[in-house]
Amino acid sequence: MWRRLSSQFPTLRSAAKSNRLSAATLSSPANLRPTVPFIARYFSTATGGVVKKVEDVMPIATGHEREELEAELQGKDILGINFPEGPFGTKEAPAIVKSYYDKRIVGCPGGEGEDEHDVVWFWLEKGKPHECPVCTQYFELEVVGPGGPPDGHGGDDDHH
């Protein structure tokens, strides 16, 4: 039980797993997101058939809760750019971190096994590759969203 509980805390999680790097946007600083859509599987086993609509699962769901449920039912992860994993980044083949904005907070947990170190957090900015001062892992930012400053309250933010 405690092992599972601890798996929800971002640093413990990234330390326990052999994540090569962990990243977070400014507005979503912790790696708390579920990585695999469990609801889709759960409901398909519970009802015998595959559920497609949010209305079948939770009719009163609305807003972001509804968007999240819908994405999970379609087997998508609405935050697919989180939890980046991959081979150790080098100058020739840097570790690519995707971002919706022009910069993003990234944590480097070092290599695997013996080479692992405490997570070192830093700002990774567009066009400015970063080398981890501890393990020399090399990072590069790839902007997949609208870019601009990640102030968490961007101009297109109309969540009401």
Binding site: K76, G145, D156
Partner: peptide, 12 residues
């Protein structure tokens, strides 16, 4: 899909 908000947190 989510146009307005790219995270699942609630900024009150």
């Amino acid at each position: 899909m989510i146009e307005s908000q790219r995270h699942s947190y609630h900024l009150v």
